[in-house]
């Protein structure tokens, strides 16, 4: 069906390196298991049988940030935990992306108190924000699809520090 049938035998397909690399990256994002609070449970539900996050390429949640390229900040980040989040983010190799899952990660949520960081984007750059309290698994999957669309359009030269430019 489609283009594969029209091509003669032993033929090649041309594409750009950028598209190929982006296609590889977006379809095999490996999240680091960074569940902090209630949204973590919905994240585990997304990985379980009904919602099945592995059909989007996220087969396993890596325990070590050094082996992951996506950080899903699921839950409230407190002032005590903030240095730990920053350190984990720094430990992740480039290219890396961050999804801020839930109202607490976006802006502190309902907890405007003395110990809660009002949004994880105060310490690390965030790519996709998912609202909800807690976030429904369908919403998290929608966020992942949006992130994949974002990765598709990335420019290899200027993307973060992992680009060719340097």
């Amino acid at each position: 069906m489609g283009i594969e049938e029209k091509l003669p035998d032993n033929s090649v397909i041309t594409t750009t390196i950028e598209k190929l690399v982006n296609w590889g990256r977006k379809n095999s994002l490996w999240p680091t298991g960074f569940g902090l609070a209630c949204c973590a449970i919905e994240m585990i539900s997304t990985a379980a049988a009904r919602f099945d996050i592995s059909r989007f390429g996220m087969e396993i949640f890596r325990s070590s940030p050094r082996q992951a390229d996506l950080m899903i900040v699921a839950g409230t980040v407190t002032n005590k935990m903030a240095p730990v989040v920053k350190r984990l983010y720094d430990q992740m190799p480039n290219p890396k992306w961050v999804i801020a899952m839930g109202a607490c990660a976006i802006s502190g949520g309902i907890f405007n108190t003395y110990s809660v960081l009002q949004g994880v984007d105060k310490i690390i750059p965030v790519d996709v924000y998912v609202p909800g309290c807690p976030v429904r698994p369908e919403a998290l999957l929608d966020a992942i699809v949006k992130l994949q669309k974002k990765i598709e359009t990335e420019n290899l030269r200027t993307k973060q520090d992992g680009g060719i430019e340097k």
């Binding site: 002032n79 005590k80 405007n112 108190t113 003395y114 110990s115």
Partner: peptide, 21 residues
């Protein structure tokens, strides 16, 4: 036990502001 060791102040006191200092 809850707050970091270098924290100043006692949060649950009535004169401590909710959103922190």
């Amino acid at each position: 036990i809850y707050m970091p060791d270098d924290f100043n102040g006692y949060p649950l006191r009535k004169d401590y502001p909710l959103a922190g200092e």
